[in-house]
Design a protein around this nucleic acid. Structure first.
Lengths: 225, 225
DNA sequence: GACTGTTTCAAACAAATGTTTTATTCATCT
DNA sequence: AGATGAATAAAACATTTGTTTGAAACAGTC
């Protein structure tokens, strides 16, 4: 077996997989060192301690993921809002689940899933650097898409609805696969999934814009309160 | 301090919180025993080992959660499909996030979030007993809602879209709270959230039913492939 | 070739943790 | 009261695990 990468990067690469598969606490320095064919002390030498390594891994994963799939179409803000929404969703799916992204629930994707549930201190920088701008992109898209017909307080719920669909596919892979037959949120389905979520979301947004309280006989606000 | 419950149940109750807050691996028997004001050996005595305790906790959480919020309206299948969809979403939010449910990301809810990402062996029974029936309820609702206008292969993606919105709110609480201002997926917003997700989903379903490829100028299947 | 700073390695340390053991207390029934 | 079995308590055990240490190997420079 050859070692194409220097020790430090070999450790980062392997550690991302193991942290993702097993979680921070369950991952041991020894497992990483063995898998990376390096000495135990190498981790502490290069990264100070286990936390330092984890921080480096997180930084590496996010910077590469967003570099490859930035969620922004080539034309940027000049493009059609619907086009931009599609790109946002498409890139999100590929970043989360794609083989050349985070590989979904069978790799580094799970590491991010865990961060969503239990953010470590290392995640705070990530949130500022990567997640907040990403949220802003989506908010702008929704603004342009609704042409002022959507009140600002509806932007966030709509954003959550869209992100939620993508992230759920990425995170809940194991249970989805278990419950449903003939449906796996993985590589070969990513474009189908993107299309579905795009259409579903567009329908949802349109309904929210048109103030459903008026546009439909059914008003659950009144029925249920 | 009084001990209103017998040791065994006191341990289950406390263990649910700690497992949820810290995760299985990071939770120690000693922490649980101390918090439950019990002896360390009591855990092994009553539950055989740490896994046994975890299994008991999981069973307890799910059975109580679905008992209180079954996702089925009082009238059952005779009720209006839209009414049933609203109930499904409403119950799901309250089960996941409510104070008398799983308390979202500040308690036992996180334990379930983790199970979605890394199912433990103990979760297999749960999936059969609770999750599969829940999925069936939703599939039936979607079937009735679309009156045969939705092909079966679209039922599952639509289901995922709906569940995804709910689950994401429940799981990604920490990051949502961090990124957005004035928006917390918690107790006081549950009904507002239910309404939003209901409206958004209804819009999405309608669009999927009406075969958006025809109904709209925009066809990303062609644009992007 | 000697020197210097960097990287690797094997061994050891100290703390934490799941589990077991043994003894003691408590409740219940005869 | 005495006996039986369940429940609790304290201590000990055997591993595991993050970290440190001190020496050896390596790379580049004067």
């Amino acid at each position: 077996m050859t070692k194409p990468l220097p020790t430090k990067e070999r450790i980062i690469e392997i550690a991302g997989d193991i942290f993702g598969r097993e979680g921070f606490k369950a991952t041991t320095i020894r497992k990483i060192a063995e898998a990376a064919d390096a000495n135990i002390a190498a981790v502490n030498y290069h990264f100070r301690d286990k936390d330092g390594l984890y921080r480096a891994v997180l930084e590496d994963i996010f910077s590469r993921g967003f570099q490859k799939y930035p969620s922004v179409p080539p034309l940027g803000k000049t493009a059609d809002p619907e086009e931009r929404l599609y790109t946002f969703i498409h890139d999100m799916f590929h970043r989360l689940l794609g083989r050349d992204g985070w590989g979904g629930f069978s790799g580094k994707g799970r590491l991010i899933a865990r961060e969503f549930i239990d953010p470590t201190p290392a995640f705070e920088d990530i949130a500022e650097t990567f997640i907040k701008p990403c949220k802003k992109i989506l908010a702008d898209i929704l603004m342009d898409l609704s042409q002022g017909k959507m009140t600002p307080d509806k932007i966030i719920p709509c954003g959550i609805s869209i992100i939620g669909q993508c992230v759920y596919c990425a995170f809940a892979g194991p249970i989805i696969q278990r419950i449903t037959e003939n449906f796996t949120p993985a590589e070969e389905n990513l474009d189908l999934l993107s299309d579905h979520v795009f259409q579903f979301s567009l329908g949802g947004i349109r309904r929210i814009i048109n103030d459903p309280i008026e546009s439909d006989s059914l008003t659950h606000q009144e029925k249920h309160s």
